[in-house]
Design a protein around this nucleic acid. Structure first.
Lengths: 219, 219
DNA sequence: TTGTCGATTGACCGAATGGTTAGCGGATGT
DNA sequence: ACATCCGCTAACCATTCGGTCAATCGACAA
């Protein structure tokens, strides 16, 4: 039925089974992410994937199994390696790069970030396996920040007013706060430059000339 | 049936109707907040309130109507007046008080805060009416911060490195970040003092002696 | 041709859902 | 005594849910 039923790739021939499985996953990903688990029915997934409901249960034993498959697929972009970015930059530039990386990532993946946060907040039963992976990423990121700040302090590149752990914790909190502000005030485009400038002012003791961070005039 | 069916208060007699309505609301509040809207059935609410399901539909036309009643009741504690706290303190003490107020509030109301955030993130259809009220509170808080910081800058009490709007925006982001960190790492008790100390160091340019903010050792 | 096997489907199932309805008990006013 | 209205319920309804099953279709092997 599908036009791409027998399609030849560079190295492999996709079986029709993998094809339909993929389309089911795509539809389920879209529906679960936009409506949530309980509000999405298997019939909807089947209709959107133009496939019979029974076929979904042939690929995935239960609705939950389909859901975790979707979760894992949604998580894939999170596992890119951000350690390579190091290069030969000094600590200060690396920290700024790391901050910018965080902000760009949550901007470009806003919908899945939103979905994961909602999921982890709501349904801590399902979220447990998810939390483990996300928190692992999170503490990895934190560890990089701590180490960079500590090295920056040794070389007198950034402020010593706080311990490296304190500074990294506060900085991460600020980033997360910017994230949720971005998730709620969906109008604003989340420009990383302003936040990076704020961080620079805070951590490196520089002056900030223009209005960089605040925004949203108060009525 | 209920023991408190005819109970005399100081000024008024509670009709049995209001009594059962209250018990329904209480049960619905508990169930909606802990499981969410779609995962909570009217039969469950009826059972927990020890009331027939039909009675719920006699008090509230639809499930949605019950839900918004619950939302409004959950929102009540958020409307306490935090303007009175001003007193004769200087701006610096007022800012610290405001920050402490925020943190104490989210600590004491963590479950409903969690619920509201999850709700607003997930179900933007229902959340719209809710968002309006929450965002009104939020921008009110932000406005107070901006004004306090601006006055503090005029009197040279706090750093002029940023505009008041920038500083308030960044500070709010940091607070929100601390909030979500508290919501996720549920083990830690969210001590406001450390965060207040961080803010002081950042905004007033003081040194911070001990490890105040970071926490969570990295493995 | 026949047989096997993976992929796919329509029809079906019991359970649970949100919501309705007819009616009951008991206060209250007349 | 009677009618009326409020608070309340058991039983019911149509629909949808996650999940199953027997049967089919097409490809490939013997």
């Amino acid at each position: 039925m599908s036009l791409s039923q027998v399609r030849v790739g560079a190295t492999e021939v996709r079986s029709g089974s993998q094809d339909s499985r993929d389309e089911i996953l795509k539809s389920a990903m879209h529906l679960f992410a936009s409506r949530g688990f309980h509000e999405t029915s298997m019939s909807e997934v089947a209709r959107e994937a133009r496939v019979s409901k029974a076929l979904i249960f042939w690929h995935f034993k239960t609705k939950e199994e389909l859901f975790v498959a979707v979760l894992n697929r949604l998580l894939e972009p999170y596992f890119i390696d951000f350690a390579e970015e190091a290069g030969a930059l000094d600590e200060r530039a690396q920290i700024q790069k790391l901050v910018e990386f965080y902000l760009l990532f949550v901007r470009d993946n806003a919908s899945s970030v939103r979905f994961f946060i909602a999921q982890m907040l709501h349904d801590q039963h399902f979220a447990e396996g998810l939390s483990d992976q996300v928190l692992k990423l999170y503490s990895g990121y934190r560890a990089m920040l701590v180490e960079l700040i500590a090295r920056g302090q040794e070389r007198n590149l950034c402020s010593r007013r706080f311990t490296a752990e304190s500074a990294a914790g506060f900085l991460l909190s600020a980033l997360n706060g910017i994230l949720i502000e971005h998730l709620f005030m969906h109008n604003r485009p989340l420009e990383p430059e302003s936040a990076v400038a704020m961080v620079a002012g805070w951590l490196f003791g520089e002056d900030v000339k223009s209005d960089a961070g605040g925004g949203k005039a108060v009525a």
